[in-house]
């Protein structure tokens, strides 16, 4: 069985996001970039499936700037076997929309014929939470989103999903798209020897045009602004004053 894992290069989750003064977006120039944390979980799960003997090959794919090859190398260092880079943007500020990403991924799936696509449930930059569901729709496959437990058994997968208020288990037909949530696993760190080895693993480079996909955005970004600032608060001297303030504010 082959697994395809899409990974996205995003601003590192520890970096403070700064809105550009001209309102055109978030400043991504000279900012530390990392693999989207949810995608790391998807890569980890794919590698664990291979280690468990259920999967023969883990292929990672990234769609974006040329520099996304670094993110793919990280996935290869974690243990993925092979990588595909689809260059679709030449500016870090050009975010390829989930619909276009899903169309490119569909073309990659048609070519690679994986049995399973494991994706992060959302990217922490645009927070759209859409690519997996959209890819599933375009392929006409089943989908299981927000997974916290995955059990693959022949032509079915049993997936426990994180839903509002609890967990829901569903059984989906293979091939399928599973998007992963935080509780699924704790991704490993790549060891130095594995980072060295990853440099020799195959990484194919393509373009969006190779797949005949138009990546023009459907959503025009009119402006990007700061959220409303919180008014400065006060320090209280002790617990008694805190309780008094909370009562005054009607909070308790």
């Amino acid at each position: 069985m082959k697994v395809l894992v899409p990974v996205k290069r995003v601003i590192d989750y520890n970096v403070k996001v700064r809105v550009k003064a001209d309102g055109t977006g978030v400043d991504l120039a000279n900012v530390k970039m990392s693999m989207n944390p949810f995608d790391e979980i998807a890569v980890e799960e794919a590698i664990r499936l291979r280690e468990a003997g259920k999967v023969a090959e883990v292929v990672v794919v990234s769609i974006g700037m040329k520099q996304s090859d670094q993110t793919l190398r990280t996935a290869l260092a974690m243990g993925a076997d092979r990588a595909i880079l689809v260059v679709a943007a030449d500016d870090v500020h050009q975010d390829i929309e989930p619909l276009a990403v899903a169309k490119i991924l569909k073309a990659v799936v048609d070519e690679e014929k994986p049995d399973l696509v494991l994706a992060g449930k959302q990217a922490i930059d645009n927070d759209m939470n859409a690519t997996g569901q959209m890819l599933s729709a375009l392929l006409g496959w089943s989908q299981a989103t927000f997974a916290s437990d995955i059990d693959i058994d022949g032509d079915h997968a049993t997936v426990t999903r994180e839903v509002d208020g609890g967990l829901r288990t569903i059984k989906v037909k293979m091939p399928t798209i599973i998007t992963v949530d935080l509780r699924l696993n704790e991704p490993r760190y790549a060891s130095l020897p594995n980072i060295m080895k990853a440099k020799k693993k195959p990484l194919d480079q393509k373009t969006a045009a190779d797949y005949g996909v138009d990546v023009s955005p459907r959503l025009e970004i009119i402006s990007t602004g700061e959220p409303d600032e919180r008014a400065a608060g006060i320090k209280v001297a002790d617990v008694a004053e805190l309780v008094a303030k909370l009562k005054e504010a009607g909070a308790v």
């Binding site: 403070k16 930059d125 990007t224 602004g225 959220p227």
Partner: peptide
């Protein structure tokens, strides 16, 4: 976007 660190207006 960015978990609420920015608000985007899209058309």
């Amino acid at each position: 976007i960015y978990a609420g660190n920015a608000i985007q207006t899209v058309k």
